[in-house]
Design a protein around this nucleic acid. Structure first.
Lengths: 218, 218
DNA sequence: CAACTATTCAATTAATCTATTGAATACAAT
DNA sequence: ATTGTATTCAATAGATTAATTGAATAGTTG
């Protein structure tokens, strides 16, 4: 029966996408790329893989339709091939968090210590920001900030937070955000700010989620 | 830096889910299970795999948190471990359909040939059914029919269609539906019915779409 | 208790995947 | 044209995966 054949072919194709997401390094690369366009050497540096190895993983992601590239000057830049890929990634993470006990354990041992740092939802943030009550703080590296950020947010990468503490107003609440729910940058920032006497909160989710929720972007 | 370690650990765990979905047979099994609880031998039969092989694939899906099982009597029944898994599956299919040219080609070559079997939209069907002009035919297996179907539809699984041809009225148009846009059951049914001289159409989309569109269900 | 059934486990082989290495390409800068 | 840089390609070895086979297990039935 040829329809059976068709169905199997189809599933085999779907499996290509699964296979692309079956390796931790590739998922990490994908997450970096989801934050904005990245060149191969950047990705190699961030992920700690060799350039050749990074390149190969990128090919696989590309052949599975998850990312695309374009060359500008000497460098090849990779970007996510669509918002549906971000949805897929989030679904995957969601399933892993809910159903894999190892993940639950990992998160609870690493993050609960820090998670008294109550997050605040995005809608509330917009209200408070409009009223001039909060300082929105983007703690990601400045390249990421430049390729898109929450409106009105100021950028102080975590590594430079200490230096710039003076430029922050203690009268305002501070809301810090970074790359996503498991990015520890914002956790660390809020911890440090509170140590110094600021009123600081962590934004629930990070910039990719903000963007894909259709919220305004600068 | 230990947070890097944590992140890598986390991605490695996420990759387990991807790995579970990196094989066509497993995806097929997952889809069958998503339609309702299934025993191992049922799944082996439908998928055409050996029982031992099926069992092993099921273990992998289970260890990735996608399915769960419970034993009743002699048999072990597997079921989807949550709606989030269905979301994940749909995201995966969605990405594959949009970004893999092989999938687009497969769908267009296999389905367009048959797609002269013009589909009819749901709203029109309801009108025609109310006027008693059409026979609505559910060609899914009877368990699926029993757990919910289009109002007034009669159930003849595709495998038994030949036998029950006599019970169908040639004076009425027949509209067949199954599980969804890529389910070939309805295609095959319409093809067979037309061969036998019936006026048959395919319902655009399947029962899951019908239900989630908020249309009435019996 | 013995025979049977449905499922899982264990061992094997062939195929595939990952990371590493070093060379090849493509292009920009000089 | 030559040099230098960013990326990709190709070949390799070790690890992992899929399917097959046959045996083991758990539980039901007679």
């Amino acid at each position: 029966m040829s329809s059976n054949n068709f169905k199997q072919e189809l599933f085999t194709q779907f499996a290509r996408v699964g296979k692309a997401m079956s390796n931790g390094n590739r998922l990490e690369l994908l997450e970096f790329i989801a934050q904005g366009e990245r060149s191969v050497d950047e990705l190699a540096k961030i992920s700690g893989l060799s350039v050749a190895n990074t390149s190969q993983h990128l090919q696989q992601l590309r052949l599975a339709g998850l990312i695309n590239c374009n060359k500008r000057g000497l460098k090849v830049f990779y970007h996510i091939s669509g918002d549906d890929v971000i949805d897929l990634f989030n679904s995957l993470r969601n399933v892993a968090e809910r159903h894999l006990s190892d993940v639950q354990q990992l998160i609870s041992t690493y993050l609960t210590v820090k998670d008294d740092l109550e997050p605040i939802p995005a809608t509330e943030l917009l209200d408070r920001a409009r009223d001039g009550l909060v300082t929105v703080l983007d703690v990601r590296p400045s390249e990421e900030y430049q390729s898109g950020h929450v409106p009105g947010a100021i950028n102080i990468p975590l590594s430079q937070l200490e230096k710039h503490l003076g430029s922050l107003d203690k009268a305002h609440d501070i809301v810090a955000y970074c790359r996503g729910p498991h990015c520890v940058l914002a956790f660390d920032a809020v911890e440090k700010l509170r140590d110094k006497g600021f009123t600081a909160h962590r934004l629930e989710d990070g910039f990719p989620e903000w963007k894909s929720a259709g919220l305004p972007v600068e």
